[in-house]
Design a protein around this nucleic acid. Structure first.
Length: 521
RNA sequence: GGCCCUGUCGUCUAGCCCGGUCAGGACAUAGGCUUUUCAUGCCUGUAACACGAGUUCAAAUCUCGUCGGGGUCACCA
């Protein structure tokens, strides 16, 4: 039995669409589940420039998500080159063969003549079928047309009767009438070949057994099958995936409709969250490249690739009625085309975030440290070289923050541990409420500060006890002082546990920050 | 418009093939508990078979029709 081979064939567009990456993921999952190969082929054209540059974000995104390819750019393989632009010789051979076998013909019509026929059909409300008036079946025909100053394109000689029955792995049986198919052009007048032909030829050459692609290609399938059959190629299996739709709609997700998606609250929140992180690490977040429709976005702000993969896998596939959390390894063991759904699935930023949280919770402190460190460095909260003390500090913050760090970039929310005391930023509202308008609290803070000054073991537990004793002595409730204390040492009213803050800051910084507040007051 | 695909809570989905469940789970949402804040965690609630016929003792499930949503109709990929 021959090995299962699937492929993902992106155009070098300069970005990796989140829907595209889901298709690539399913291709790879299916191949790996069946111990086959996943191939990456680049569908560029001769005219495209800067292919390498435009390819970079795509390769990078796939690699980041662990959608690694067995053959293709960089890694090579037995069927090099994996670039369509470098394979044109094969296409010319295929066109010649099609012509020779009589499954294609040279067409000498002019574009406006075809258009006129098309318009006429539309006016009469009937399906357009080319009259083949300028079809050259003999050399004499060709000569005559050429004398009229015409040039030819090569068209498929599509059957005008009968039907095609396609057994799609996801759609089931789909029937097309050949009469509805056009005589599609496969080669232009300048000799370059069109996508559908190139696609089929490459799939044959690369021995692709399963064509797994998005639903939008379903109606293109008959013409491709016609080429396959005409050339006597091996027929691949087909699986047309539902596409990833806009949040709250069934329309295909598109990079260009960012403005529209921003009206969706969850989508806007996700982007906003990303922008906050991007700004702090000095990343240009204004361009349309910084966009949740593009895979890069998630990498830049500290998503976990396995969380994105988990979410994407569940967007159109399910194992059963309750399992949702999967590692990439589990997915390759459990994936099957049979359980792919048929209807388009809307992209839901909140559910993605929820997967991110769940996956982040499985990470150890050391793992989170490795994830968060680059963000702290880019934001210049810590230097490029890390000494032991800094590493300890960051790890303590990560442990104290716990589940509050959902994205690696969220570490930047805990800037109070990394800035010098005199640069601590005080949240205005919190300062007003807890310090400026609460003299009682400030007075208590002053008193408690004296206790801290003579307290030597600065661990969370003993600090907790110290405060409790203070409360008892003063006969007050914890709320009467703790909010002021939090704002004094952290500058904000939200964050990690109070005693963790004090312990991490240490005696010296804690007291200095309280004194700063008392001075300000 | 033609052709093709598709329709279960707001969202992702299980169930459909092989009729019988209070139509299940997750995210979101509402309320509660835990609590020094925020977050986590735990408990509870609200919420769906697009519509109409038919078959049947019984329909989300089978049949027909209607309506809705989407894709595609290039000398783009």
């Amino acid at each position: 039995m021959t090995s299962i081979r699937t492929r993902f064939a992106p155009s070098p567009t300069g970005y990796l669409h989140i829907g595209g990456v889901r298709t690539a993921l399913f291709c790879r999952l299916f191949a790996k589940k069946n111990h086959g190969q996943f191939i990456l082929r680049i569908d560029d054209t001769d005219q495209q420039r800067n292919v390498e540059e435009a390819l970079q974000p795509i390769l990078n995104g796939l690699r980041w998500l662990g959608v690694d390819w067995d053959e293709g750019p960089i890694v090579g393989g037995p069927f090099v080159p994996y670039y369509q632009s470098q394979r044109s010789g094969k296409y010319q051979q295929a066109v010649n063969e099609l012509l020779r076998r009589g499954f294609a013909y040279r067409d000498y019509s002019r574009p406006e003549e075809i258009q006129a026929e098309r318009d006429a059909a539309t006016a009469e409300k009937r399906t357009f079928v080319y009259s083949r008036r300028w079809m050259a079946e003999t050399e004499e025909d060709a000569k005559r047309f050429e004398q009229e100053g015409r040039a030819y394109v090569v068209r498929l000689k599509t059957p005008r009767e009968g039907r095609l029955v396609l057994n799609d792995h996801i759609r089931g049986q789909v029937v097309f009438d050949w009469a509805n198919e056009q005589d599609h052009v496969v080669q232009r007048a300048d000799g370059s070949c069109l996508y559908h032909l190139a696609n089929v030829v490459d799939d044959q050459e690369l021995q692709i057994t399963h064509v797994i692609r998005a639903e939008e290609h379903l109606s293109n399938t008959p013409r491709q099958i016609f080429i396959i059959q005409s050339l006597g190629y091996n027929m691949p299996e087909y699986a047309h995936l539902p596409f990833v739709a806009e949040p709250g709609s069934k329309t295909k997700l598109s990079k260009r409709k960012l403005e529209k998606y921003l009206k969706n609250r969850d989508f806007a929140n996700l982007l906003e969250r990303g922008r906050r992180i991007a700004e702090r690490i000095g990343l240009e977040a204004k361009t349309d490249e910084f966009n949740p429709v593009i895979t890069d976005f998630y990498e830049k702000i500290g998503f976990l690739p396995e969380a994105v993969v988990n979410y994407l896998a569940l967007l159109g596939w399910s194992l059963d009625d309750k399992s949702e959390f999967f590692t990439p390894k589990e997915l390759t063991e459990l994936f099957s085309l049979e359980r792919v759904t048929k209807a388009a699935a809307s992209f839901d930023p909140q559910k993605l975030l929820s997967f991110q949280e769940k996956h982040m919770q499985t990470k150890t402190t050391d793992e989170k440290y490795a994830l968060c460190l680059p963000f702290l460095q880019k934001a210049k909260y810590i230097g490029g070289t890390i000494d032991a003390a800094t590493e300890t500090l960051v790890k303590k913050v990560i442990e104290a923050a716990g589940d509050r760090i959902k994205l690696a970039g969220d570490i930047l929310d805990f800037d109070e541990f990394f800035v010098p005391d005199d640069q601590l930023n005080y949240d205005k509202a919190a300062y007003e409420k807890r310090i400026a308008n609460d003299p009682t609290a400030v007075a208590l803070l002053d008193e408690f500060c004296d206790k801290l000054a003579v307290h030597d073991s600065f661990d969370a537990e003993s600090l907790d006890k110290l405060l409790r004793d203070f409360l008892e002595e003063k006969q007050i409730k914890i709320g009467q002082i703790i909010h002021a204390l939090r704002v004094a040492v952290a500058g904000k009213s939200v964050g990690v546990g109070m005693f963790d803050i004090l312990a991490i800051l240490g005696k010296e910084k804690t007291i200095r920050r309280i004194k700063n507040i008392l001075l300000l007051y």
